[in-house]
Amino acid sequence: MERNVVMIALFAALIAVLGLIPAITLGFGVPITAQSLGVMMCGTVLGARRGALAVLLFLLLVALGLPLLAGGRGGLGVFASPTVGFLVGFPVSAFVAGLIVEKTRSLPLVVTATAGAAIGGIFFMYICGIVGMAVTLDKTLAEATLLATPFLPGDAIKAVIAGMLTSALARARPASVLSRS
């Protein structure tokens, strides 16, 4: 129990630290941040339940006003911004990624973790994010989808990195990958 609490807090901190990494701005002005990598890692390393709890802890700290989101944003106002759908999608993404890693044991961990990160951290996060953008920006789902598509290449790279880091952690410290224990 104590170990679970420590790991949940550690991964909530990881998401916050990844928000400090400066955004990489693509040629057409779309910034790519590292926080979604932390969300993916919460699921692939901690598993479904613990991963979602780590993300919920992070979001609680953001809601309390701590400037933990990329760009130093925090407070309740971010939950009324165009990114609200992505924030709501964070715990869903971690849960789905973790569930895939927990349930799929027939494939190598690097493959399972990459697939979990992609399905949870891209597909499910984008569903939530696109709906949130459509509602807050008063756009159609198609228009909101077009706004989100420039982020796909960066998120695909992050899913591969999450899979590789999870696999490397499992080789170095197998007991640390709670999604497989």
Rank of each mutant, 00 (worst) to 15 (best):
V135S: 08
M133H: 08
I8Q: 05
L147K: 04
P82W: 05
L56P: 06
I24G: 14
A23W: 08
T140E: 01
L107V: 03
T136P: 03
G72S: 10
L165P: 10
L169I: 12
V17K: 12
G116Y: 03
T166R: 07
L69S: 06
A159W: 00
V84D: 02
A54V: 07
R73E: 00
L68C: 04
A94Q: 10
R3H: 15
R73W: 03
A115H: 05
L64P: 04
V92D: 01
L10C: 14
V96Q: 01
T112Q: 01
T140D: 00
T145V: 13
L26P: 12
L26I: 15
G51Y: 08
L169P: 11
V101Y: 02
G77R: 09
L76I: 08
F86T: 03
L169M: 10
A97L: 01
K158M: 12
L146V: 14
S106K: 15
T83L: 07
G85E: 10
G75I: 15
I32L: 15
G120S: 07
V88H: 05
A115F: 09
G154N: 06
C42A: 08
A94M: 07
L61N: 13
P150W: 11
A115V: 13
V45R: 12
G98A: 05
T114I: 05
V96T: 04
G77D: 05
L64R: 11
G77K: 11
R180H: 04
M1C: 11
I8D: 02
S81D: 02
G132L: 02
L18C: 15
Q35K: 06
I127K: 13
M164I: 14
L20W: 14
A63R: 04
L141H: 10
A63P: 01
A168G: 12
T136A: 13
G98T: 08
T104Q: 02
A168R: 15
G19P: 08
F124D: 00
T104L: 04
L53P: 12
V110G: 08
F86C: 02
G51K: 03
A172E: 11
R50F: 07
L10W: 13
F28E: 08
G98V: 11
R180I: 14
L14A: 13
L107E: 00
G19M: 05
A52Q: 03
V62S: 03
G154E: 08
I161T: 06
G47A: 10
D138N: 12
A16P: 09
I100V: 10
Q35S: 13
F95K: 01
K139G: 03
R49Q: 01
I122Y: 07
A16N: 13
G121R: 09
N4E: 12
L99Y: 06
A170W: 12
R171Y: 15
L178S: 14
S81T: 03
V5D: 12
